[in-house]
Design a protein around this nucleic acid. Sequence first.
DNA 1: AGCTTTACACCTAGGTGATAAGCT
DNA 2: AGCTTATCACCTAGGTGTAAAGCT
Lengths: 194, 194
Amino acid sequence: MIVTKAGRRMFPTFQVQISGMDPAAEYVLLMDFIPVDDKRYRYAFHSSSWLVAGRADVAAPSRMHFHPDSPARGAQWMKQTVSFDTLKLTNNLLDDNGHMILNSMHRYQPRFHVVYVDPSPNSHLQACRNFCSFSFPETRFMAVTAYQNHRITQLKIASNPFAKGFRTTDPKDWGMSISESIYFFIFIKLALWI
Amino acid sequence: MIVTKAGRRMFPTFQVQISGMDPAAEYVLLMDFIPVDDKRYRYAFHSSSWLVAGRADVAAPSRMHFHPDSPARGAQWMKQTVSFDTLKLTNNLLDDNGHMILNSMHRYQPRFHVVYVDPSPNSHLQACRNFCSFSFPETRFMAVTAYQNHRITQLKIASNPFAKGFRTTDPKDWGMSISESIYFFIFIKLALWI
DNA sequence: AGCTTTACACCTAGGTGATAAGCT
DNA sequence: AGCTTATCACCTAGGTGTAAAGCT
């Protein structure tokens, strides 16, 4: 994923389809990003692979991204796919726009959190029971300021509508289904929770 | 104001600046539109004026437009000007997009409502005390499907950024301050209320 | 004749990777 | 040398009034 000083959207967007919520109860949906390991990476062109380049830089300030529709009722969240398309990534440690701060050349794991807004007066006593997190290893990515791998660049150009200006061949001529192969489209069952 | 089948934004946008709310309390902000009278109008080109053209058509279904940030705390509402720029007007009586339905060639009064979200258990008993409405006569307008008065057209072209393509003269050359003369920018004091 | 609808050129606003310059 | 930043052309997405066609 590209990170910029001004903030860059993720592509593909992190999306979840939710079921099993109480339709009438209120929930807050959040995301954050945790380092996969304590390493800094560099890309080796000759071998087309990422190599460890030492210990991680000092950790970027950790932030939570509230889905802008939060809080909302379960019925609303389950009605359609929930998309975190307003979330932006930045490498600016002093960012003042509420973007998610990441270190470039480091690997991250997106996390998705659901918080049940408990209306009962003593809800703080069992706050831990009203909170649930999900991590999908297939959504891990490397933060970069410029693409290192030309095949990733071509994949983004072929699939992101905003990069259509850089397309040379018709994406329909591709042998694989891009949307099936890379989209962060995840189905979550909360049936056994709360 | 132009009304279309698909829905058209108001221009200028209805905006309010609020003070006097309880910063910690929650409020819902709404708008609706009521007919100014029971008449249908037509425009007389030769006299450049609106004439009564009979009784009003059957009233369009009345709807409420919730400000999309609702509900929010008083502190949030008072922090900056509240703008109803996502509100759209339509003449489609069967509209399914949640737009405000108006009859063309009829005159309307926008209304602004503030609802205090009372957390107390018996709040419904005094619901009428938690509700307050404001009407500003200077924001009245005629709903039309096409502009009838060329001076209104020129005013919109001169002041709406999206109509810049139709400008012939630099709006800075105008003698009057457009923003001062036509903007629905209203200051509201709620200090004596609730 | 008078009002409404549709297609359109021309904007605003902002999301892309490419490119070259800048930094360490 | 390797990574970052700023600028750019080229898109998407959608808000304007216009003009011609459609409707009643």
